[in-house]
Nucleic acid binder design. Structure first.
Lengths: 215, 215
DNA sequence: AAATATACTTAACACTGTTAATATTCAAAA
DNA sequence: TTTTGAATATTAACAGTGTTAAGTATATTT
């Protein structure tokens, strides 16, 4: 039955086309512009057709959130070359921040908005699912790196996972405040010494200096 | 002209009633339920009447955001009793976290959502305003405390404002990840040792331990 | 050829923020 | 005391949003 397969493939194609269109609108015009009706208009289908391929909006949002994690993952794999775990940890921080600044809409979807997690709760798992696979995988690589740092004598007396969460929170805090404009409003009318670099960079450097001294 | 004054007061009263109603809906049912139409229905006025007292929705959202800062400020003033700046810094962190957990909707309005800052940008200041008065005031008290810590020998070699931003980011990062459910999803299916306390508490304690060692 | 399954659309529901035009109210001026 | 005019409030509408029930048209199977 080759015909059935061809139809199946066509169906997969349209599902992919919807996602690509959503991604394009999202990347170009942000979250606001990414409505089901606008996606439908872009691919010249009726809005209800979208519902034949995605359960609801949170389903599309979750798929976009996954695309974001692919982008971040691509950046992280290049860091596996960095041998020394502490150097790698520092590079991960820089990469994470750079990703957040260059893909702020994706960052929001991945680490700030509730919608993707809502989708996981209401449409997937339901008690059995592993919570949040994308976030888990990313957090795991951080835990591994920090564990290796500890083998080199860093962060003594700190439980690995707890310390990993602490590191993530710090960097995420900087990114969150920056991406949503809070940092900009605080920096305004307050000279943050060290001309040339941003307040965020300065704070991140301060953080690295802090970590460095924990050996 | 006593009549004019009475009308003025009535006008102020209605403006306050709108805000109180918004606050009530917001506190009880969250951001979703706080629409202009629902506020109007609650006070039995037409939705357009709201626009005679508030420019637009972001105006109401900004007013609510200010209410949130009043609540946080009330909690912070009691900490001025704590004499030793480092003890005060720790207490500030705990208070901030507790506030975020107990008033997560307000926390979102104050430190996560863009809308209140959008209001400042488009309806106020416009080049001359001081950016974000409420955020500024809160951040200033943190800067002051950290400056006093430095006088006691803490955080040597770290620029005050930069380090204050670092501390804020860390605690905000923990709150942001918790309030939006990301932390919960990560902790799920991953035993975070130290039974009894949450992963967040554990990380915060790890942070305090880290700061303590910086003397 | 008739029955059935698939893919898609139209129309509608129940919301959202916001605005223009209209009506009501009520103190001040003629 | 009647008229005027500003302040206050409302109705109706616009342009959106996500989502669903019902209907259509096309292609496959019986």
């Amino acid at each position: 039955m080759g015909i059935k397969e061809r139809k199946e493939r066509h169906k997969e194609d349209l599902k992919q086309l919807i996602l690509d269109t959503a991604k394009s609108l999202f990347t170009r015009y942000g979250y606001e512009a990414t409505s089901i009706r606008k996606i439908a208009a872009e691919i010249e289908f009726s809005p209800t057709t979208i519902y034949l391929y995605y359960k609801d909006k949170s389903d599309i949002i979750y798929a976009l959130h996954q695309e974001g994690f692919k982008l971040l993952s691509d950046r992280f794999v290049t860091l596996s070359n960095v041998e020394h775990p502490f150097e790698r940890l520092k590079a991960m921080g820089r990469t994470y921040i750079q990703f957040a600044l260059e893909n702020s809409d994706f960052y929001e979807l991945m680490f700030i908005m509730r919608e993707p997690l809502d989708f996981l709760d209401t449409h997937c798992g339901e008690m059995d699912g592993d919570g949040w696979p994308e976030g888990d995988a990313t957090f795991n690589s951080l835990i591994m790196t920090i564990m290796q740092c500890q083998e080199y004598g860093y962060f003594k007396g700190h439980e690995t996972k707890t310390f990993a969460l602490l590191v993530w929170s710090t960097v995420h805090g900087l990114c969150s405040l920056t991406v949503h404009g809070h940092l900009e409003h605080i920096v305004k009318n307050r000279q943050f010494f060290d001309s040339g670099i941003s307040a965020m960079e300065a704070s991140f450097n301060s953080f690295l200096q802090m970590l460095e001294s924990m050996k």
